[in-house]
Nucleic acid binder design. Structure first.
Length: 563
RNA sequence: GCCCCCAUCGUCUAGAGGCCUAGGACACCGGCUUUUCAAGCCGGCGACCGGGGUUCGAAUCCCCGUGGGGGUACCA
């Protein structure tokens, strides 16, 4: 009989979806799809102290955004009924009872302090601590008595005294010596199951046949295998994925975002440029915890961190899937890139759709070595994907981006204009880039800010040549009857030729005058989209403002800056 | 400390004993193109961690060393 392949992704709701988690989800998804099986999503929310409100929703959103739809799990149900471990408590307790009754598990009543003391003592002597099985197992009533006395009571599994061999699809056979194994906890003192326990019980209940998970779980596997044996469960096929690291070899961690913002905050405060209270407010933290965050290693809530980053004008490093969404990456491209971190189809292909990856996927082709997350390559993937994407797909993706981009200058822009923007921005790398580049086309005149360097370079420098060009061009533009890119091009190019000026000499002064900086879409389209009236007004205003500055702006450069 | 895993260009990787003078992609460098930012085109630089084996032959197999990573919880 050929059992249906069932895989699962089982995150705990502690925040946004991580890059590593996304890849694990992807591989599980691909394996299930590839083999015509089922892909389930299970929420591992058994740690009462770690669950974060709203995190599950974020997790699901990220997964959906990526297009990794699950066949069973939250929102869609499935044969296992509940897919939140917090709602499956009864089954863990039932199984624990079974284990206790058959003598395969026992109560243990050491306190955390006692355990910690043993650990320290062992550390000193031999360097490693393994929980030593007690000589006496508390009876049911003794356990109850301990509980009554306020002592913690946990349930531990009796590990069989033999080596465990993990048959891993990627790593081969990994043998863990019996001497490395110990009686791990099944049920915590609060009655909730540990990860090890819940994962085994649920994988069995959900019929999971293949477990693809990060390599950080490799050393957990003997526990799971021992438990499966004790319970008479079959052992699923295991495949431990290599880990995704930062370019510098460090682990990709949310903490990086805190570090980036913390540094900026400290710099701001040191420069006397900001009130502590204001920053704390931006982070929606009370002064005490803000201070603790600022001076320590604590982590701020993702959204609070984002607000603070905005306040400080720092770019958060992209760590979680949501960060990439906010930067304006295409989800299908992110998925494609992530898939190649540890897997390759073997035929030299790199750019693949989810369907193509599904068709090509196999666990055998997953590598063993940790991969570094190279953002430069990702950016290139995205650039090429944007160039190759069908127009309507691109528009939908841009709409999605604008939906999550706070206070976007392009927020109210109609689809037709968005299409136009996409057309005139070839070479585009990220949606955020388009947003920044086109902001001036939609911003009200008062909101325009002029970049000093740009003004100096294109308008002032060289005896205000740029300014002169602008002044002469003004009436030419004013005379353009048909305010569209083509006619503007004719007029402006004609002007340039009549003066013997290359387009660059003409376009850049205009660009800076109407956009405030040297970067915008092609100048003729830019002018058309800004509109005749606003263009003329911005040019006039620029001329006026800089003329007033003239005495100061053009002193004979007697004291050279050379030193 | 102890246990486990890993090791090909800067990065992601192809390579399953002769097809390898090691292939591709990104990055980088040079040139071209150019109204800005990009994009594009052409060319270039660039790796089998070290040492021992095994074999007629090793990037591929074995051992040791070194380096990197993971684990060492009543977190997952």
């Amino acid at each position: 009989m050929t059992a249906t392949v069932r895989t699962r992704f089982a995150p705990s709701p502690t925040g946004y979806l991580h890059i590593g988690g996304a890849r694990t989800a992807l591989f599980n998804y691909l394996l299930a799809r590839r083999s015509g099986g089922k892909f389930a999503l299970r929420i591992e929310d058994t740690d009462q102290t770690r669950n974060i409100a709203g995190a599950e929703q974020k997790l699901l959103d990220d997964l959906r955004w990526l297009g990794l739809h699950w066949d069973e799990g939250p929102g869609v149900g499935g044969p296992a009924g509940e897919y939140h471990q917090s709602r499956r408590l009864a089954s863990y307790q039932r199984v624990a009872r079974e284990l206790l009754d058959s003598g395969k598990a026992y109560y243990a009543t050491e306190t955390r302090e006692e355990l910690e003391a043993m650990r320290r003592a062992a550390q000193k002597e031999q360097g490693g601590f393994l929980y030593r099985r007690p000589t006496h197992f508390p009876s049911e009533s003794e356990a109850q008595k301990a509980r009554d006395e306020g002592r913690p009571v946990v349930v531990r599994l009796k590990m069989p005294p033999r080596d465990v061999v993990v048959s891993d699809q990627i790593l081969g056979e990994v043998r863990i010596a019996a001497s490395e194994l110990y009686d791990f906890v099944l049920l915590k003192a609060d009655g909730w199951p540990t990860y090890h326990f819940a994962v085994v019980v649920d994988d069995e209940a959900m019929g999971v046949t293949h477990v693809l998970r990060g390599q950080e779980h490799l050393m957990n596997t003997p526990n799971h295998i021992a438990l499966q044996e004790a319970l008479g469960y079959r052992t699923p096929v295991y495949a431990h994925l290599p880990i995704i690291m930062n370019m510098d070899g460090s682990k990709m961690s949310k903490r990086e975002k805190d570090r980036a913002v913390r540094a900026a905050a400290a710099a701001r405060l040191a420069a006397g440029g900001g009130e502590r209270a204001a920053l704390a407010a931006a982070a929606s933290a009370d002064p005490g915890s803000f201070e603790a965050w600022l001076t320590g290693d604590a982590q701020l809530d993702g959204d609070a961190l984002r607000r603070l980053a905005r306040e400080l004008h720092v770019q958060l490093p992209e760590i979680e899937i949501h960060d990439f969404r906010l930067s304006g990456y295409l989800p299908e491209t992110l998925l494609n890139f992530i898939a190649l971190l540890g897997w390759s189809p073997g035929d030299g292909r790199e750019r693949m759709s989810l369907e193509e990856m599904t068709a090509a996927f196999s666990v055998e082709r997953i590598g063993k070595t940790n991969a570094r997350f190279d953002r430069a390559k990702l950016l290139n993937f995205n650039t090429q994907a944007i160039a190759a994407a069908p127009k309507e797909r691109l528009l939908a993706a841009l709409r999605d981006y604008l939906g999550v981009s706070e206070r976007s200058p392009l927020a109210g822009v109609p689809d037709d204009t968005l299409r136009r923007l996409l057309e005139i921005n070839d070479g585009l790398r990220l949606f955020r880039q388009l947003e920044e580049k086109c902001a001036a086309l939609f911003a009200p005149d008062e909101a325009l800010s002029y970049d000093d360097d740009a003004v100096q370079k294109t308008l002032i420098k060289g005896e205000r040549a740029g300014l002169h060009v602008l002044a002469e061009l003004q009436p030419v533009l004013a005379a353009v009857g048909d305010w569209r890119a083509a006619a503007l091009e004719t007029a402006i190019k004609g002007f340039g030729e009549s003066r013997g000026l290359g387009l660059g000499k003409v376009a850049q002064p205009i660009r800076v005058a109407v956009c405030g900086n040297t970067v915008s879409p092609p100048i003729f389209d830019t002018l058309e989209l800004i509109g005749r009236e606003r263009v003329l007004r911005r040019i006039g205003e620029t001329l006026r403002r800089l003329a007033a500055d003239a005495p100061r702006a053009a002193p004979p450069a007697s004291q050279g800056s050379s030193s």
